[in-house]
Design a protein around this nucleic acid. Sequence first.
DNA 1: ACCTGAACACCGTTCAAGT
DNA 2: ACCTGAACACCGTTCAAGT
Lengths: 204, 204
Amino acid sequence: VPAAKPRATLNADDIVETALALIRERGVGGFSMRQLSDRLGASLGATYRHLPTKDALLELCGKAVFDRSWRPLQDGEDPMEWLQAQVMSLYHVLGEHRGLASYVIRRPRVSARDVADPVHDVLLSAGFTEDEAITTGVVLTLYLAGALLSDFEHSVTVETADAGALIAAGVKFILTRKGPGDATKPAAPAPKTAAPRARRTTRR
Amino acid sequence: VPAAKPRATLNADDIVETALALIRERGVGGFSMRQLSDRLGASLGATYRHLPTKDALLELCGKAVFDRSWRPLQDGEDPMEWLQAQVMSLYHVLGEHRGLASYVIRRPRVSARDVADPVHDVLLSAGFTEDEAITTGVVLTLYLAGALLSDFEHSVTVETADAGALIAAGVKFILTRKGPGDATKPAAPAPKTAAPRARRTTRR
DNA sequence: ACCTGAACACCGTTCAAGT
DNA sequence: ACCTGAACACCGTTCAAGT
């Protein structure tokens, strides 16, 4: 085991954390590398020694926020309730970091597969057919992306109402394709645990 | 009638049109006021005499693209088919102007009411309850926003498949809350023409 | 009346020069 | 080995000075 570095003056994790604080205050739109360096008490060049570009830094920030929000399905947990909770958690935590959503969505650091695969499995385990699960996944993903990227939370139209409640209602709408007493198609017997991950995770 | 100006050297409409051409080529991300002025054969200062800010120009561009896409419901036209066609038209035309969607969505120049009111009326005329129409409208709007703002069209995940077909399937999914032979709730008799606009258009 | 072109205050990024 | 601080090539925006 190599000896742990004693008191690193500046490291990527600290930079990400300080960047997230600034983003919480002013959003990504009002975030600059100079301002960040000032806050870190370092020069611009020193900051750049730890990160290749601003874009890469914002991806790291997005990844950190995502990891803080994402919680895997636990044994015995209701899959659909888990899914709803995940979506709402992402909505809230990314809403607190305005402008950061675009650095999470469709960025390689948070692979679409990391999210899409578990979601797909959960939908299958809830009795959706393969096609239904695909369409529902696309709709759910783009719906959440739209809520985050259009800054729905701060929309003039919604200001008076509770934006979070409206979003949650939409999620429920998307996930409830049929009434609870649906009998037109016998649902696959839903196991207590999620179905095994049948689909390949092609990209890390 | 005031005499028409003979050959105005530079006007806002021409600027918008040239800007749209540049956006089609490089997207909003690679669009600058200097580049635009070069293309117009004018100086930077001359361009700014016709427009207050770059942001205002991009809103005008968004409005122009929206107006080119949006077609009101015609008498005798199937409302749900009209709605699907409108969504897909917006998806395609805004997809050709990468990055412009954020200057249409939630910008005062294209009022949410201009879109949300007709959509709401159409859903009511198709037999949706008030609550169903509201939720469906929100989901549809944010779904489209997500598709446009996340640049779904150029997503790595979707590259191989037909993105447009996937989007269309999602729209259908959202608009088809129940199977065609639904009988759990007697739908309001759908008139051939759209319902009269019962809701106030508060903002122009 | 309209336009030019330089200037201002910012960016992200790089890199010789210092310690 | 690490950092500084100036520089480079861009931005959006403004405005005296020209015609």
